[in-house]
């Protein structure tokens, strides 16, 4: 696989050591003859750091109000739709090598193959990722991250954490966020100049997302009675749904509720 070998070659030495160590973990599990011990589905909210989290949340809202929201509004007003789509496509293509690493670490070979094909097609036919011909061929992205890799390895979710700038997370995903940045196989391959462009595109993607989901994000942050509690609840439910593909819709007996008077 082209991307797989590219990853190994492009890594700096400490990076490569980490990569090899990470690869060994699932390999050891295979040798030991056991399936990867996916973490059990958690329920409820574990938030022992609530006081600190709420302070971070207030600071994040301040950053949003002062910087991100106005920039995203300007972006939405000025940048044409075609260019917005192009930015999203390039950002997505740049993410793919890191995604493939995580697919492999999860022993999810079909997704690794799909994302590798996506990367190859979009980087060439899609003119450096500006267009998404792979998507049109039915090769949608099989998105993942290192937080999910940890989950697949059996690491439990851990307490809820709101990270500065990055926002809602948990202990496991916080570690995942850091590792994904370090592990990005594109990073060490790029010249300083290209890396600055890549960083700019990644920041652009954040602005683009803030603009695209403006109604929903504004609703949660500025119209909710408790924006901290709402974002925590939304994050936890959605993240658990994403990770536990077998999770059933919570059973809710409509006969069990007293609706008298309503």
């Amino acid at each position: 696989m082209a991307v797989g070998s590219m990853i190994g070659l492009g890594l700096s030495r400490p990076c490569r050591r980490l990569f090899i160590a990470l690869c060994l973990l699932p390999a050891l599990a295979l040798v030991a003859g056991c399936a990867l011990p996916e973490a059990p589905a958690p329920a409820g909210i574990e938030d022992p750091f609530e006081e600190r989290n709420r302070r971070v949340h207030a600071a994040n809202k301040g950053i949003d109000r002062a910087v991100l929201r106005p920039v995203a509004r300007a972006y939405g007003a000025v940048v044409p739709g075609v260019a917005q789509t192009g930015l999203r496509n390039v950002a997505n293509t740049l993410d793919l090598p890191g995604t493939v690493v995580n697919n492999l670490l999860q022993l999810d070979l079909p997704s690794a193959a799909r994302n590798s094909a996506r990367f190859t097609i979009n980087a060439t036919l899609g003119i450096g990722g500006l267009f998404d011909p792979a998507g049109e061929m039915g090769l949608a992205e099989a998105d993942t991250d290192f937080g999910e890799t940890l989950h697949v390895w059996g690491v439990p979710e851990g307490a809820y954490v709101e990270l500065p700038v990055f926002g809602p997370s948990n202990k496991r995903d916080a570690l995942g966020t850091v590792v994904d940045i370090v592990l990005n196989p594109l990073g060490p391959m790029l010249s300083d100049e290209t890396r600055r462009v890549v960083t700019a595109i990644e920041v652009g993607e954040v602005v683009d997302t803030r603009n695209r989901y403006a109604v929903m994000i504004d609703g949660v942050l500025y119209e909710s009675a408790d924006s901290y509690a709402q974002s925590r609840l939304l994050y936890l439910q959605n993240r658990r749904f994403t990770l536990h593909t077998d999770i059933a819709t919570p059973d809710e007996d409509p006969m069990a509720l007293d609706t008298e008077g309503f």
Binding site: S224, A229, T249
Partner: peptide, 22 residues
């Protein structure tokens, strides 16, 4: 209804509860 695993009933119950508390 559930949107990508987000239970709308539960989410709105939290919101209404927060409004009453506030």
């Amino acid at each position: 209804m559930f949107v990508e695993g987000i239970n709308m009933g539960l989410t709105e119950r939290a919101e209404i509860g927060a409004m009453i508390d506030a």
